[in-house]
Nucleic acid binder design. Structure first.
Length: 401
RNA sequence: GGGGGAGUGCCCGAGUGGUUAAAGGGGACCGGCUGUAAACCGGUUGGCUCCGCCUACGUAGGUUCGAAUCCUACCUCCCCCA
């Protein structure tokens, strides 16, 4: 019966529709349909929100998918509000997780937040970014918190797939986790966000925030989800805790190598999500992977860094030569060198592990495999030699001066 | 408040008195292949003064010739009913 005017029925201008489509490139979903174009029609800079969890400090390529998108918004004159979830980090985002995460110590959160920002500004435009900590508004009076809690129902909170799965499997869901979407949603109220970005795994949280905004009589945000980048294993999402990540601060050679280690099947995905491009059709996997690696290294370490990294890669993995830069290991010249002990010290592995590697023929001296049964050497036999463990670990043994 | 279940090596997960340093898988590592740190194949994967010894199956005791496996207490966690 209501005859209220529905803003969604207004037609956005042609120009805004085109612009919105441009901004939506490479995204998975933009909801509600047409919402972004309407917002653009207002002709004012939009407040684009990204909430980050300061649990793992280092930014990796997975994060950059979303950050690049934010940058695109900034380049169009919009403003990014980066929310450091120092308060919500205590709660732990249940998205895509089957277990709870431990709460972090406040000092740890602070430190993580700092490094995160530093690295985020490798991509974001500092002048068009506001950084806010959500403890600023979430550390609220109990009355206010109850008011917030009153605005959601348990059924709505339990709708999310993660919870459904966990309940079906008889796995625990903490009451704290249940609160997470509410708190994150309140962030959107606090900063009056127009658009919020996140990975596809964030869809529930992002949409839930719209409801919270509505409950507080705020204009509802548009949500945009971005694809999740798989890690170097090619299967699970890139994440620091899974150890399958490529960090934006990884040294050039390592970054190059890690990119080379992604499965060939994931090449198109990486090209698309990280470079917004695609490999040349005729290129064999090896070549397009090299190009990808080189461009990424250039991006994070400056022009020609990629070329240098590739040269280093060829040197070690193709020509099987030693790298240019090798760390020294100062060995004791007083007595016989017990190889397992020396390797243990030089490479930070246990002696037992060193023995195993020696036995497997994995230790080389200046390129020649050392015999499996020879464990003791005179210092003179090793002095100045490059000792190699496996394919990629090198140390130059030097007698102490 | 009541009932039930679980705690094993980096992770997951078998194992209910004796060749168990502990199946299997994942991961990681070494090797082979490959002008990829891809794929594929083989091997290794607690520590050490390494052909032997030490430490390990939530914690502390106990039973036993012998325990991850049995008993007692404790700690932690989970599920269901109310």
């Amino acid at each position: 019966m209501s005859v209220k005017s529905h803003p969604d029925t207004t037609r956005p201008s042609e120009k805004s529709v085109l612009k919105a489509a441009e901004l939506a490139s490479h995204s998975v979903e933009v909801l509600p349909d047409g919402g972004l174009a309407l917002q653009l029609d207002r002709g004012e800079p939009l407040r684009v929100k990204l909430g980050i969890d300061p649990t793992a400090p280092d930014i990796h390529l997975g994060h950059t998918v979303v950050l690049n998108k934010l940058r695109q918004f900034q380049d169009e004159g919009h403003r990014v509000v980066l929310i450091i979830g120092d308060y919500t980090a205590r709660v732990g985002d249940p998205s895509g997780r089957s277990d709870q995460r431990p709460m972090l110590a406040p000092e740890q959160i602070d430190a993580n937040a700092r490094t995160f920002q530093e690295q985020a500004f490798k991509i974001l435009d500092r002048d068009r970014t506001d950084v806010r900590f959500n403890s600023e508004w979430l550390r609220m009076e109990p009355e206010e918190l109850l008011g917030l809690l009153a605005r959601a129902t348990v059924a709505r909170l339990l709708e999310r797939e993660d919870f459904q799965k966990r309940m079906a499997a008889g796995e625990p869901i903490s009451a704290l986790e249940l609160l997470y979407p509410l708190l994150q949603g309140y962030d959107s109220v606090a900063i009056r966000s127009d658009v919020e970005l996140g990975g596809t795994d964030q869809k529930f949280n992002l949409l839930f925030a719209r409801d919270i905004q509505a409950a507080y009589d705020c204009p509802r945000q548009t949500v945009m989800t971005m694809p999740i980048l798989p890690g170097v294993d090619g299967v699970r999402r890139m994440s620091k805790s899974l150890g399958n990540y490529i960090g934006v601060t990884d040294p050039p050679d390592e970054m190059f190598g890690k990119v080379m280690s992604i499965p060939d099947e994931n090449l198109d995905e990486y090209w698309g999500l990280l470079l917004g491009d695609e490999p040349s059709p005729g290129d064999p996997p090896n070549l397009s992977k090299r190009r990808l690696a080189s461009r990424l290294v250039d991006h994070f370490h400056g022009e020609s860094a990629g070329t240098n990294a590739e040269a280093a890669f060829n040197r070690v993995f193709v020509d099987r030569e030693v790298p240019k830069e090798i760390e020294d290991y100062a060995m004791d010249v007083e007595e016989t060198v017990h190889l397992p002990a020396a390797l243990s010290e030089a490479f930070g592995i246990s002696r037992s592990e060193a023995r195993r590697i020696i036995q497997q023929g994995g230790v080389r001296r200046d390129g020649d495999v050392l015999p499996a049964d020879e464990l003791d050497y005179a210092p003179s036999e090793l002095d100045g030699a490059v000792i190699q463990v496996g394919k990629r670990r090198f140390r130059r043994f030097q007698s102490q001066s």
